[in-house]
Nucleic acid binder design. Sequence first.
DNA 1: GTTGCCATGTAAGGTGTTACATGATTTA
DNA 2: TAAATCATGTAACACCTTACATGGCAAC
Lengths: 184, 184
Amino acid sequence: MTIEVAILGFLSYAPLSGYDLKKLLSQSESLHWSGNNNQIYRALVDLHEKGLVERDEEAPSAGPARKVYSLTEAGDAALRDSLLSAPELPEMRTPMLARLVGADTLSNEDLDRILTAYGDELRGKIWALEEMERRGDGIPDLGSERQRVIWQAMHQRAIAFYRAEMEWAATLRWSVGKIVGGAD
Amino acid sequence: MTIEVAILGFLSYAPLSGYDLKKLLSQSESLHWSGNNNQIYRALVDLHEKGLVERDEEAPSAGPARKVYSLTEAGDAALRDSLLSAPELPEMRTPMLARLVGADTLSNEDLDRILTAYGDELRGKIWALEEMERRGDGIPDLGSERQRVIWQAMHQRAIAFYRAEMEWAATLRWSVGKIVGGAD
DNA sequence: GTTGCCATGTAAGGTGTTACATGATTTA
DNA sequence: TAAATCATGTAACACCTTACATGGCAAC
């Protein structure tokens, strides 16, 4: 379970509440997590049952009750184990590719329009991510200098992914445009 | 539902059975589909109930029974609609990024080892995809010349994705190696 | 006094995977 | 005769998302 690894990772810096984790996870673009609660609170219950995290219930003098989680020794070991286990390959999910299966039903104009719209959408996303970077948003302020390099690289990876997709769409648009030379 | 779009797309070329579709879908790397049956046969039932496909049951003189599906007019319209609707952004799922959240618990050596192993894994994947390409595998033999350019581009996109990830891992390895200059 | 943030959780459902189950035909 | 391919389907479960539900505190 990939979210559990991320949670254990974050807890390796400091004890955190579910709410804290939710913010950290949804903040970070490259973790591409929707920000839903269901998953996180259930993952924490699960990790607690497995003895990988400890729960500390704060009875607050002011503000809402918080449950603060921290790594146990077993949790620390489990984190190391999953970091050192055989790496999993990444995957891309691009609905556009599924759409293009049926592209032969489209006129050249429509196909061009679609690829252009896709490129525009991607440009917007890239712009937003670059803007985040400029503001220092989306990059957790946790860990060593080495780790800060890693956070940066993760963010860069997300940007590069969208940029590659944008360039791919532009190239494809050019290729299919060239074939028919304006026919249709 | 992204798989339904792909199915409608394939059916726009010719009537096909569930088995045919299964082969086409799992063949194509960029559609990144596991090849499971559950999904596909249920999707076909679903599309049939919605009136988007027609089912033709072949009573065969030899061989097993086949149910051959073809697009209805409504199906054709639905396909066009989904192609022309607002494009969805792609996503990458990279478990490695989730792992790297906890990278600060690792020594420089271990981190280096992990990134190296990841790069090797990616290299293997890229090699396999390039091999497929050389053999003309993984690219459906369907549609116009324009469409063949699209199939090619889809395959190229998958390769480029893994290659970008491999280069990213190498760069990160170099960056973190530089920071500490061999310390630990 | 209403909006926004802190903080916890649940319900329902969509999407996808692995594995199971069956049986005929073709190829080595 | 054993293995691969053709062909259909089901069961169980993992993962992830949207939306719902509740309540206190802070700021404007």
